[in-house]
Amino acid sequence: MSGAQKIAVTVTAVVPLNDLVTRFEFRRTGGGLLPTFSGGAHTVVEMRDGDTPRMNPYSLMSDPMDQTSYAISVRRDDVGRGGSLFMHNNVAVGDEMVISNPVNLFSLDLRAKKQLFIAGGIGITPFLAQIKQMERLGGRWELHYTCRSEALGSYVDELTTQHPNEANVYYDDQDQRIDLKALLDGQPIGTHIYVCGPKGMIDWVRNTAAAEGWPREGIHYEEFLAPQSGKPFEVKLAISNKVIQVGEQESLLEAMERSGVDAPYLCRGGACGQCETRVIDYTGNFIHRDHWLDDAEHASGEKIMPCVSRFEGKTLVLDR
């Protein structure tokens, strides 16, 4: 488990927005205020899918200053491992769930002279909270948001009505594209870019900005990897003195948790470094998928990030 207390919540609203995205709202079970948070923060939602525990991170999209309720929006992933499907198919108003304290790995640089938000699809959610924060505390911002189509444009109406001068929306099916080079050109010094969306979009923004001479520190991005399925494998946990099996559809981190082994985590998406685990011995190959370890560390065989990375081979002994 991770150190902080979990929060018991009750689902107070389930609002389908379109064919793919549904919003879930939570209040604290039994009443009381929820913690405030900073725009860009996520919460890890725990699900009990029959015998399978699932924990998925979702960006908090509600007003960070509003302590009465939290909201997340979940995009249904029909080919994923099932967390989003569970949310869509099984979670109803009145259900009691457990969520983590907010954690922010995508926070605003409050020194910025201007915040430039670039969103793709469901990547809009952290910006919804950041925009509310900017509106409350002041500061220049601008949003460029691409959606597949008007029908799938989550929160477009709300954004363009409330922020007609700041919000710019682009529809793929109408061949509308962000002219990124033109957008970057002429931004005042001290502008920071935030990008959340598919990996291709993040890479495009980072590479284009770098080519235009933008500093690395001025480009912020959030890319949560969902753990991918893979071949089952066996792991020996040296400290706990247990041998566990990692199933096809679960991550190593989830398998440890299922076996009652205490394992720290924050993002569950290969980004934060919290679950980094030392490898004691191995015969086989690692399938590293995280953003945390560098190439040399990946090659060394000395560390693994159990939230997203897997293993194929005969023996794997971990320091857990």
């Binding site: 991770s2 150190g3 902080a4 207390q5 913690p35 948070f37 304290n101 907010p102 954690v103 924050l266 934060c272 470094g273 919290q274």
Partner: peptide, 11 residues
Amino acid sequence: LKFLLNIQQGA
């Protein structure tokens, strides 16, 4: 530093 960067709300 690694420890401190990961200090969470409520912990």
